[in-house]
Design a protein around this nucleic acid. Structure first.
Lengths: 214, 214
DNA sequence: TAGATTGTTAATCGATTAACAATC
DNA sequence: TAGATTGTTAATCGATTAACAATC
């Protein structure tokens, strides 16, 4: 069924569908047509139907989609029915904030460990998880079957840490370090480059001013 | 010169070019061809030339591109030659961490204020900036000519705050709240939806396992 | 000048939208 | 059954890549 390659453009839209369907579910909505959903999400009904049909038919002609069922199915497609153990590497301001913020246990993401090189931080706790020495990282990732590493370290140390993670079986990295990571295929990377986001905003501000406030 | 509309796909690549050119500059590299840059960045030389040519010819036949000049020009295109005042709204863990982390003064992004509803936080400082009451937000944005708001508040309060920001002339929002913001055209939004990023990783992990570890 | 490499046009590829027959 | 809406094929649009003449 799920044989042919799905484009990342489609994957990138799944979490948003999942969020809207969750809201509909909470509102007690039982069924929804691609047209109604398209109005709510500001995308075309055609795209919605194409996207869903990448994974097989979830709807019913003349009826639409059952919200509860579709919500559940998209969650399953996203792999949210499985648990994912994650660690945070770098217990600076951002790393500790994410430890408190990434509270996605109900989505199956379990915060298992946090690491830093700074002796002063080691032993402190973040949401009940003890900050460990970087020395323990490799064994921990291997033994505790960590899938995902959230990387909040300076760019210069990133590459070395990534090598260690890869060597010990990491499957994915959420990268906040401002470098492009080199990983073998099979290791997934999502970059969160906040300065890039700010620069895009800056460009679009300038463009808007140039075009509309001459 | 910069008349025709540039696609967001191109804009999205500019910060990365900017970063690589900055590195080349720091390495003392004087000139680079689209082919050399393509090898370094793992994109096609053709795309590089097309992208740059959206903004006019920066290169020279038979020579390539002057690194220093191109770096400077892309910075200018991104609007980094202008100052952008920003505030952070929500002084929770994430907001405070970003106050310390978004240290982009040298890129022209100036941290001017941080706001929260929590009486206990008001008066504390984040990188020398005092946490203010949300009551002061509207006047501050208006009087201090704030361009950019970094939004780290619970999703339920996001929409109300966005209205206030828009009313007082905000130009762009970096949105960490897990909702789609409704803004008039002319207000730029970049979303940083960390749970969406985790879900994409989850999907790609599942897919890789399904296809390669049957 | 000869060689290199851009700027730019043309070809290809992929993603989005439109249309409609199938069917609930 | 008639009406509604999907699933899917076809048409369009836009973005990427290839090719090459222009030119430094």
């Amino acid at each position: 069924m799920e044989a042919k390659e799905i484009s990342q453009a489609v994957i990138g839209r799944l979490p948003r569908y999942f969020r809207y369907l969750g809201e509909l579910k909470d509102e007690g909505v039982e069924r929804i047509s691609s047209h109604e959903l398209s109005e709510r999400m500001h995308v075309t009904a055609s795209q919605i139907r194409q996207d869903f049909n990448n994974f097989g038919g979830f709807g019913q002609q003349g009826y639409g989609y059952n919200v509860e069922y579709l919500y559940h199915e998209i969650g399953r497609i996203l792999g949210l029915d499985k648990e994912h153990n994650f660690v945070i590497i770098g217990a600076g301001n951002l790393g500790r904030a994410l430890g408190n913020y990434l509270n996605f246990e109900r989505r199956g993401f379990v915060f298992r460990g946090i690491f830093d090189v700074d002796e002063g931080l080691i032993g402190q706790e973040v949401r009940g998880v003890r900050i460990r020495s970087m020395e323990e990282l490799e064994e921990f990732v291997r033994e505790e079957e960590i899938d995902i590493a959230v990387l909040t370290v300076p760019k210069l140390s990133a590459e070395g840490i990534v090598d260690k993670l890869v060597k010990n079986g990491i499957r994915a990295i959420l990268n906040f370090a401002h470098v492009d990571l080199n990983v073998p295929e099979g290791v997934q990377v999502e970059n969160v480059h906040l300065s890039d986001s700010l620069m895009k905003l800056s460009y679009n501000i300038s463009r808007y001013i140039r075009e509309n406030e001459p």
